[in-house]
């Protein structure tokens, strides 16, 4: 038992030491290696869903009629999916015609598996020309920026993530502030002076002062004024213009 405790203690010390040692050495191939589990996750997920799909739509021995019914159900689902995808891609094309800095479109294949971070993974990486800090948007508005860029995949930090902060302004009053994510469905707009008149539904657009987000991009709308009289600044709850839970394709804007 004593030996076990010594082994555990040594292991724990090595863990702590390595966490500090490796904090600043993460780059290139190491990042690729770190994302490997996610690729395995994605592949295993599609295998699992494929297995269940085959199980559900397997040819029935009772008769061809039932098989035909299964085929029709599959076709109908495919048609509905194709129709929805067409609508989304049409929106993406509209964005392409509207924005001269439009770069490419990508498909979302996974989200963060935990409750702590709001990130998406897309199916394009630096082999497709994607770079760090490109703006990810849909026709409805900005959703975030690219963070980790690997060969064929990249992560997007959503504007609702705790690590996100965007320089913004209120479209009506032109007052400038910082839009911060809190890990939930909404964001918080800070540093708007309390003497500025703010109303629910006011549009929040990027100011371009952070050097990352070009100015004039819609990020969300004022949902609630959490505190206005407690200090010199308002604390404003902002609902993202794009519902962040239902994103399937994103457009990337160049810098």
């Amino acid at each position: 038992m004593y030996k076990n405790k010594v082994v555990i203690a040594i292991f724990f010390v090595i863990l702590i030491a390595s966490s500090f040692a490796f904090r600043n050495i993460i780059s290139g191939r190491v990042e690729d290696a770190s994302i490997y589990p996610l690729i395995v996750i994605e592949e295993s997920a599609s295998k699992v869903s494929g297995f269940f799909r085959r199980l559900l739509f397997a040819p029935d021995s009772e008769g061809k009629l039932r098989e035909k019914l299964g085929e029709l159900a599959r076709d109908r689902t495919s048609c509905v999916e194709a129709e929805l995808e067409n609508a989304r891609l049409r929106e993406a094309l509209q964005l392409k015609s509207e924005r001269p800095d439009y770069f490419t479109a990508a498909e979302v294949f996974a989200r963060d598996h935990s409750n702590w971070f709001q990130t998406l993974w897309i199916d394009k990486g630096f082999n497709d020309g994607v770079k760090k800090d490109m703006i990810a948007a849909t026709r409805s508005g900005v959703i975030g920026r690219t963070h980790k860029v690997l060969g064929d995949r990249a992560s997007i930090v959503l504007i609702s993530d705790v690590n996100s902060a965007v320089a913004v302004r209120l479209q009506a009053s032109r007052a400038e502030g910082i839009l911060e994510g809190r890990g939930g469905r909404t964001c918080y707009l800070k540093y708007i002076p309390s003497d500025v008149k703010v109303e629910t539904g006011d549009a929040v657009i990027s100011s371009g002062l952070d050097g990352l987000f070009p100015d004039g991009l819609l990020l969300g709308y004022v949902a609630d004024i959490v505190s206005s009289d407690a200090g010199i600044f308002h604390v404003i709850e902002v609902k993202p213009a794009q519902e962040l839970d239902v994103i399937e394709e994103v457009s990337l804007l160049g810098r």
Partner: peptide, 15 residues
């Protein structure tokens, strides 16, 4: 593995 999938090499889940 959980930390890797979240984008860390060594993170809180490991501990």
């Amino acid at each position: 593995i959980a930390d890797s999938a979240s984008g860390f090499l060594i993170g809180p889940n490991l501990f």
